[in-house]
Design a protein around this nucleic acid. Structure first.
Lengths: 109, 109
DNA sequence: TTATTTCATCGCAATATTACGATGGGTTTT
DNA sequence: AAAACCCATCGTAATATTGCGATGAAATAA
């Protein structure tokens, strides 16, 4: 035990959880906020901004990339990272779908 | 190493990450969805719904409670769990604040 | 009272995450 | 070419998460 039993849940539940997990670290939140702000970025820039080692940041970037949230294009020796706009809106819709399930009139608690 | 260096990030970044972390497991998504749907619930109910042991579900409930997402009131031997409406809307606003930072017109990638 | 039900917590094992130095491949600069 | 820069990956250590059986406290049922 110790591993999430994802096969026991629906694809939708696993995807929501995966998206949440991708954002479940302050460094990744910081990266996303930075990319949203400047609307384009390079990794080296990030290493200056964040108080973490280059290897660690690269690892966080990879997790965001695996979740589809960001994408990187090689620009010579550097890499340009930016938000994947379509995916970003998709994720927002996914989350709002969850949030909007809430009905105002509670009957308990 | 291995521990998140949360002291190196802003309170806002840590809170967003904490909220995301609370939702970063399919079982917790399932619990929240269930509570949103029925708008009131008891833990025993959850044990029947989810394919996890009672101890595990209790642990997930505690994490959601720690994040303020749900609240439980003792009802005799049982416990009524439900969504914390105010907090739920707060979290939605927090996330939408992040999402709405995105500007349509990208200049890169 | 003696079960029985409900649920939280402890303790443990398995696995995942976080962080970083070291390394190396590719690109640019000198 | 040599040096310097940019970045991904590997290996490893520290820590966190996930899952569950066992246990126990509190309420209810018998």
């Amino acid at each position: 035990m110790g591993a999430t039993k994802s096969e026991l849940f629906t694809a939708s539940q696993n995807e929501l959880a995966a998206v949440a997990r991708a954002l479940a670290h302050p460094a990744r939140i910081a990266i996303v906020q930075h990319l949203l702000r400047v609307n384009a970025c390079i990794t080296g820039d990030m290493v200056e901004q964040l108080p973490l080692a280059q290897a660690t940041i690269s690892q966080h970037l990879r997790e965001l990339k695996d979740a589809g949230i960001i994408q990187g294009t090689i620009e010579g020796a550097k890499v340009n990272y930016c938000i994947n706009g379509a995916r970003w809106r998709e994720i927002q819709a996914l989350l709002n779908g969850l949030f909007d399930t809430y009905v105002q009139d509670q009957t308990c608690c």
